[in-house]
């Protein structure tokens, strides 16, 4: 009984001034009494991460080729790649979790984990081993002779230049007019990004004879568009190494003279609207 009287009195004390426009905060306070607490109770209840939460960089060691592109992309120089000793080092107390290294990795062996690095009493430096070359190939089941050696290009090359565009180290130069393909073996980091990109699958490490002087094969096919499917996003125009495609508004144009039939546009089209036809 007494309790009820106290509660009613307290409510009146809050409500009367509130109605007078004098104590506006009363409503929120009263509301908060009946809501459950906003506190997340962190150490007792662990935090649930979002899919994109950037916590700390992790490395999938066996795939690393020690190219050092991550160290170059890092804005704080937190990453150090020692190819000679086969070590990949990260200074945890320097990393800003921008994930620039993750984006730069040609082998996709770096990932951004959700969990942050724990506080510590020393400046933590984490070290990972980069596998030696022979061991990695044995593990991958590739014959050493085939996979070793410099990057070469077979005579199926159409000189589209996509490999040069994809190269993170700018080691490849392609001149379509001169029909020349060159690789700077000093600059090449052997990441294999160009091999993945090549629409004609002409590239390999230590493979068939170089195609530097080889003539372009006779043109067999050119791109063709299915206008029903096209969303005019211009992804094909951006990708085209020969600059044969132009997209303006809802107009898609192909310069058949320029088209080298590399099929790169077919690969990037999000709507699967491009196919190859006889020239």
């Amino acid at each position: 009984m007494i309790l009820i009287v106290i509660v009613v009195a307290a409510l009146l004390c809050v409500i009367i001034p509130t109605r007078l426009g004098f104590f506006k905060f009363g409503k929120i306070i009263l509301g908060s009494i009946f809501k459950k607490p906003a506190t997340l109770m962190y150490p007792v209840v662990p935090r649930e991460w979002e899919e994109r939460t950037r916590g700390s960089v992790a490395i999938d060691g066996p795939n690393c080729i020690g190219c050092g592109l991550c160290a170059g992309a890092c804005p704080t120089d937190a990453i150090e790649v020692d190819k000679a000793e086969g070590k990949w080092k990260i200074q945890r107390m320097l990393c800003v979790q921008c994930s620039a290294c993750v984006d730069s990795c040609p082998k996709k062996c770096l990932t951004m984990e959700n969990m942050y690095t724990l506080p510590n009493v020393v400046k933590v430096v984490d070290e990972y081993d980069i596998p030696a070359k022979g061991a990695k190939k044995a593990a991958a089941g590739v014959a050493p002779a085939e996979a070793d050696g410099d990057l070469t290009c077979a005579d199926t090359c159409v000189f589209c230049g996509l490999c040069a565009k994809a190269c993170p180290a700018d080691a490849i130069t392609v001149d379509r007019k001169e029909k020349s393909w060159k690789v700077d073996t000093e600059a090449c980091i052997k990441c294999g990004a160009c091999i993945d990109k090549c629409p004609k699958k002409s590239l390999s490490f230590g493979g068939a004879a170089p195609a530097a002087e080889a003539a372009a094969p006779a043109k067999k096919s050119v791109a063709s568009l299915d206008e029903e499917k096209c969303v005019y996003c211009a992804a094909c125009a951006n990708e085209c190494g020969a600059e044969a495609i132009t997209v303006e508004g809802t107009e898609w144009k192909l310069d058949e003279e320029k088209c080298i039939g590399c099929e790169a546009c077919v690969g990037v089209c999000p709507a699967e609207a491009i196919s190859m036809k006889e020239a």
């Binding site: 979790q97 942050y116 690095t117 506080p119 400046k123 933590v124």
Partner: peptide, 13 residues
Amino acid sequence: DAYVPGCAARPEA
């Protein structure tokens, strides 16, 4: 005495 990594350091950290 203690270092907290993170940019920015999370409240949990």
